[in-house]
């Protein structure tokens, strides 16, 4: 096997999981939305991991990028649905989503990435809340009433296609975004960015002394992570749900879910967020079905046990175990 091919081996288990999810969704009745939820959590975990997992910085305002992505899609369909773009309007929405998320990331990055960990976490919370109140206070983008664009979607595409877009293509797109995120993650881990960020995570001061442009690599990871979040928001919340209300879009609990997924699976690993997303999504779903009302009370102690006893996450542990075995090249 050539070196080029071995480089991509770790993608195999990730894509295998995604393939299985897709086949289950397609093959078993009533499983599509559940699989879509799992893929959503995997995708969020992966996008989040690129920054949080690789740098160790906690972006507590992560959900703001998802929200901006949602707004990108909503604004595109709500305002431009009369343009003869066809499906192009969805692409325009994606473009808007990415551009807005990246712009915000650049602005926030410029301010906050210079700060230490705890300050950074608080600063990003501030961005999230501040942005939401800016929308509500200045009444842009529908203000606190948000945007509902089901009707525009129906008018543009007709009932059949609109339904298919919301309940099929939006979910498939999230899967594609997740696959893309995995590729980018691998590229980062194995490339210069990964080494720089690893050095940074171990000891930021030492990395600086070694001549690594710490801020540059942090910014690269931050912006990439934000762009992916924008895409996920545009599809999983925008096109799929066909509305956006500010208090829901900027709901901080999604950031926390993202952190839990990354931690559970293993921060900074490729497979980790996927495993974390699967476990978290499934646990949440089954607890919902069997123990309605008690999920959070069960979850919270589990989170504590995980972060205290297994800080390296499931995949982190797995990698230690598999060292020297033939499986080693597949798990990253």
């Amino acid at each position: 096997m050539t070196r080029g091919a071995t480089k991509y081996l770790p993608l195999l288990p990730v894509y295998l999981i995604y393939l299985v999810l897709f086949l289950v969704a397609e093959g078993m009745p009533g499983m599509w939305q559940l699989m879509a939820m799992l893929v959503f959590y995997c995708a969020v975990g992966q996008a989040f991991n690129i920054f949080l997992g690789m740098t160790g910085y906690v972006n507590f305002g992560y959900v703001a990028f998802l929200a901006l992505g949602t707004y990108g899609m909503a604004l595109s369909i709500y305002h431009f649905h009369q343009l003869p773009l066809g499906v192009g309007i969805v692409l325009l929405g994606l473009l808007l989503a990415v551009v807005m998320a990246v712009l915000l990331a650049l602005m926030v990055g410029a301010v906050a990435l210079r700060l230490g960990g705890a300050y950074f976490a608080i600063a990003t919370i501030g961005v999230n809340e501040g942005f939401r109140y800016l929308i509500e206070g200045t009444k842009i983008w529908g203000g606190s009433e948000g945007i509902i664009f089901s009707k525009q979607l129906l008018d543009t595409f007709g009932r059949e296609v609109a339904n298919k877009l919301s309940t099929f293509w939006a979910d498939v797109s999230v899967l594609i975004i997740a696959a893309l995120a995995a590729l980018i993650t691998l590229h980062f881990i194995r490339g210069k960015t990964g080494y720089a960020l690893m050095a940074l995570r171990e000891d930021e001061e030492a990395a600086k002394v070694m001549g690594i442009n710490v801020t540059k690599y942090k910014l690269i990871a931050f912006v990439t992570s934000a762009a992916l979040a924008g895409l996920i928001g545009a599809m999983a919340w925008g096109l799929k749900l066909t509305y956006v209300f500010p208090p829901e879009a900027f709901d901080i609990s999604y950031t926390v879910e993202g952190i839990i997924i990354v931690m559970l699976g293993g921060a900074g690993t490729l497979l980790g967020p996927v495993v974390g997303g699967l476990l978290y999504g499934l646990a949440k779903y089954w607890l919902t079905v069997i123990l309605p009302g008690f999920q959070l009370l069960i979850f919270a102690p589990i989170i504590i046990v995980v972060v205290v006893a297994f800080p390296e996450g499931i995949v982190g542990m797995l990698r230690q175990r598999l060292k020297g075995t033939p499986f080693e090249p597949f798990v990253l």
């Binding site: 009533g30 939305q33 559940l34 879509a36 919340w237 749900l241 949440k284 919902t288 309605p292």
Partner: peptide, 16 residues
């Protein structure tokens, strides 16, 4: 089923 007042859960439960 309990949807936890959360949107992701709502869609999958309705399908279920």
């Amino acid at each position: 089923y309990d949807s936890e007042s959360k949107k992701e859960v709502v869609t999958s439960l309705i399908e279920r």
